[in-house]
Each structure stands twice: as structure tokens, then as C-alpha cells.
Design a protein around this nucleic acid. Sequence first.
DNA 1: GCAAAAGTGTTCTTCGTACACCCATGA
DNA 2: TCATGGGTGTACGAAGAACACTTTTGC
Lengths: 268, 268
Amino acid sequence: MKMQKYTYDYPHPAVATDCVVFGFDGHDLKILLIERGIEPFKGAWALPGGFLRMDETAEQCAIRELSEETGLNLNYLKQLGTFSDVNRDPRERVISIAFYALARKTDVQGGDDAAQAKWFGINDVPRLAFDHDYILHKALEKIREDIHFEPVGFGLLDKEFTMSELQRLYEAILGVQFDRRNFHKKMLQTGILEEVEDDSPTFFGKNSEMRSMSIDALFGNSAPTSRSSYSSSHDDDCRSTRRWGTKFRFNKRRYDEFKEGDSFRQEF
Amino acid sequence: MKMQKYTYDYPHPAVATDCVVFGFDGHDLKILLIERGIEPFKGAWALPGGFLRMDETAEQCAIRELSEETGLNLNYLKQLGTFSDVNRDPRERVISIAFYALARKTDVQGGDDAAQAKWFGINDVPRLAFDHDYILHKALEKIREDIHFEPVGFGLLDKEFTMSELQRLYEAILGVQFDRRNFHKKMLQTGILEEVEDDSPTFFGKNSEMRSMSIDALFGNSAPTSRSSYSSSHDDDCRSTRRWGTKFRFNKRRYDEFKEGDSFRQEF
DNA sequence: GCAAAAGTGTTCTTCGTACACCCATGA
DNA sequence: TCATGGGTGTACGAAGAACACTTTTGC
């Protein structure tokens, strides 16, 4: 079967996809890399990706390769650009359609069994194979732009999250610090967040399955950060009376209203 | 030579580029289309574009095809996305890397000799071949976003332009109306415009070669607009004493300072 | 002279930003 | 009890939006 050849009247480049998978461990923005097992760049780290099949779109290809190489099943992919330098692959002419994707901790939990896949803090990324350094650079640029106008952040957090988690995420992505009160105010007045009412004592287990699991240590290779003492408390204590740790969730309906509405460019 | 064949172990899709060329006639946003001379979609209008050669990047390919098919030599191209639906081309699997480009009237003047190339008002675009309707739709979406943060508009006007021309361009692209005074003020306070001093009587011909040529009728197929009585005065009158029709130009240095500066997302 | 476009400033409102205190929790 | 993080409101300044009249030109 492998002996079959494919012949064309004109030369065709090979077409591949690559995917920059972002994650967030509560402190740092992470990306997922795989270690190459074959030449070229054997042993080097690279973005997950692979060659396009004839019966799938680029996005389907990226999703499939991601699943095969890292065990991650994601569906929020965003195209980021196509890279077509003539010599970007030493084997043959390969153009690569690049995406970025957002992984929740719960996604990671599901299938981080790919032995050669590893999370790296965004500041601890090694030299990558091919032009993947450049692709990563572009992905960072793009997510930093997108986050102002699209609900990028919510793809990286659990369905319910605290305002502080959201703020830390924004700070990690943008590399800046925000004033807590102003951040809180601005996020609320966009209207795309809704508060999760936690004080309703109706059913004892109402929101229990939605409560975020402990924040740290789900990303296996969390780079040593300055503050490693972040709350590793179990969640099964003190549920009923606290209005501490208010949780929010993304209100997709409201967001869609914004997007369709007159106000093009609603900013987050 | 044509008999030579190219053979691969795995199937390769064909790779093409397509280009959405925007123009502006003073009233309406235009795009440049070509009439297909061969099947498939023979006789239909389509975006200029063609197949990628093995020794050129996607951008180089788009520039080359544009020149070959329309006579236009442009260099501001912006990648807009790659379209990879499995059946987007009935001949074989073709993925297309799409760009948009900005044409000045002076660019058009240079080489609009391609018989089958024609400008269409953005509201008078016919049904296009392949998935080019969709690509055009995406290009419009993108330029409408980009114009707020990048000097898109200045690629569509002559080097020197009046504030009203700039405003009409923004209104044509965004499909909204602005208050003249607020638009003027906002544009100036971004700092990316510099006023062209027209009142200096030092050299009689100082700016004469830079004066924009008459505004209308350079785009051959200007759709009939509501107000067809737009100033078609020749420019060679009343030069010396008027402070009417103040011209501005884009200040690239200032713009670059913005981009590098702290203020990510400077808005226009 | 009349219609249409260009030029210009002020007011009000909205949004962004800077800033300080109290409470709850866990060590 | 102490250190840390979470929650909240106000005051000032900048930017955006609304708004009218005068001058010039072409007809």
C-alpha cells in the first residue's frame, strides 16, 4: 500500500498543519510541545502537527494530529496564518497552516498520556524545530490581540472561575499588571460575565460537579514559579455560607448579542 | 517539458493563492475581479490568483499572479487566511492562501491593461467562482477590523489627501457615517497624520507633482452613485492663495513609534 | 444667489485610571 | 495573630459624542 505513488503534472508542495496549544495553570501561560522522534530535528521540541490528508480540512487535520500526538481533544481552533518559506522544511517543500488552540485544565486531565508531549511555561520554551519559534511568536502576538475582542480567556479557564483567576490569566497573556478593582469593574460592565449564585442552598450538590478542581499541578510540568504556595486547599470544605471566592461564568448569549450588535469591536 | 510528471509517496493537494484587491474611487470601495477564460467556472468572475510555484513564497506568488493577471504591481499584501474545504475546487484538491491588497489610483493608472480585469463596487459584486464569495466576505471582515489599528486607509489614497477623502474612505469601508469635526479631531490627535504645507510660496512648483490627479474616473467602472456631481474640477486652477482643501499625508515615522511603544492597540 | 462641501470649538457624558480600607482564610 | 488574598467605591482626567455657523466654490 505504501508503494503507491501519486503523480501530478505540476509540482505540488506538501501541506501540513501545526498547532500552538495554550494552557494556563493559574499562574503562567503554557504551551504544549512534542519531542520529535525522527529526523529532521530528531530530539528537538516542536509544535504538534502533521500532514494534511486529502479528505479533511486544515482544521480537521490540526484537530486530528493534536489528538494523535498529545491525546488532547480540542475544538476551539483559530487559524493564525500559513507559513510558506521555501526552505522551512529540509525534506521537501512544505507549507504549514498554523492554528492556535485553548486547553482547559479539564481537557488536559482527560488525555495527557502522550509520553512525548510536555507543557512549557511561555518563558521557558526551548529552541524549536523548523520555523516553529517564529510560528509561536506569531501565535503569541495574535492571542494578545484577540483577547481584547474575543472570549479567548474563557477557553483557558474552567467553566466557572473567580475574577482573580481571570485577571491572572489576562496578566499572564499580556504580560502586564492590572489594578484589581478596575479589572473587576471593566469585566463586569462588558456584560459577558454572569455571576454564579453560590448561596442557593436548594440542592446540596447543585454546583458541586462544576466547582473547579484544585488549581495547581494539573499541568504536569509547571515551571517553578516564584510563588509556589498557591492555595492547594481541597474544595470540599466550607461550602455553604461563604460569599468569598465568587465564581463567574462566560455568558455566551450576551457575547453573541455584542458581536451581532452595532458595536463592532467590543473590547474585553 | 509539459510532459514531465511529479511523483510523491503521499498525495499532495495543489496550493494556490487568491487576492482581494481593494480600491477607492473617492466614493465607493471597489474590488478587482477577473473573468475566467477557462473551465471550471468559465465566464464567471473570480479573484485574481493562481498556483504556487516551488521557488516562491505564498506572498510572492500572490504578487506575481496579480501582476500577470491584472497588470497591477502592489506590495502591500496581507494574509487573510487559508481556505481548505475539500471540494472547493472541482478539478482536484486545492487549498488557497488568500491575501488582501490595497491599490492606489496611481497604481491602477500604471497598468490596468489586463483586458479581463474589472473593478466592481463592493455592493455590485456578482456571484463569484469557487468559494471566492466567502473569501471576499472574510476579506471585508478583516479590513474592517484592521483599519482601526493599522494604516490600511493610507494605502488606498494618494500620498496626499484631504481629510474629507480620508473620511469618505473610512465611511465606505465601515459602512457608517462619522461626524466631520470629530473625525478630523480624532485623526489629528492620533498623530499619524502630518499636514502638507501648501501655503509656502517658495518654489512655484514645490508640491505640484504630488498633487493628486482628478479624483474620479480613474477606476474605469465606477458604479453609478447617488451623487455623481463630485468635483471633477481640474487641479491646475487656483493654487496660490487658498487654504481650502488642506492636504495631509501619512507620517510613517510617527506610526512606527506608536507600534513599538507601550500602547499596544493604538486605534485609528 | 443658491446649493453643497470644507473648515473650526465647546459642552456633556463616558470611560479609564489611580488609589485605601475592611474582611476572611490559613498558617 | 499575622500575612495573604478577596472584595468594594470614589474622584479626577482623558477621550468620545453631540452639536451650528461661516466661508468657498460651482452652478
